[in-house]
């Protein structure tokens, strides 16, 4: 199976690897997937008071396509507001990385992860208001 140059680049030099303080009110955390299925993604966003995502970090247990999908989506969401980030579709990720059909689920997982992170942020900040 030949992977695209974009995919290999994100796998070999992943962007935005790391963790942020999940207790911080500015940070939303999404943890999706399951170890038994072979994929777990943790995606975190840091949102400023204008509602714009100013930083994003990830850690992923999964195949190269899963790592690349999460690396790519952290790049994409930076600078976007929550609604824009929420509307990213898995097909955009799959197309950009030229994911083979058996790896489409990796892009779905990345979409789920960003949505989960946004939900977590919103839930936190609703409570605190």
């Amino acid at each position: 199976m030949a992977y695209s140059k974009e995919l290999l680049d994100h796998y070999e030099n992943p962007k935005n690897v790391g963790s942020m303080d999940k207790e911080s009110e500015q940070v939303g955390t999404g943890l999706v997937g399951a170890p038994a299925c072979g994929d777990v993604m943790k995606l975190q966003i840091k949102v400023n008071n204008k509602g714009v995502i100013e930083d994003a970090k990830f850690k992923t247990f999964g195949c190269g396509s899963a790592i690349a999908s999460s690396s790519l989506i952290t790049e994409w969401v930076k600078g976007k507001n929550l609604d824009e980030a929420h509307s990213i579709k898995n097909t955009e990720i799959a197309n950009h990385l030229a994911l083979p059909p058996v790896k489409i689920h990796c892009s779905i997982l990345a979409e789920d992860a960003i949505k989960a992170a946004i939900d977590d942020y919103k839930k936190k900040n609703r409570k605190n208001r």
Binding site: M41, K42, I67
Partner: peptide, 8 residues
């Protein structure tokens, strides 16, 4: 492992 949320 540095990339892995499970390791963390």
């Amino acid at each position: 492992r540095e990339l892995s949320p499970l390791w963390e």
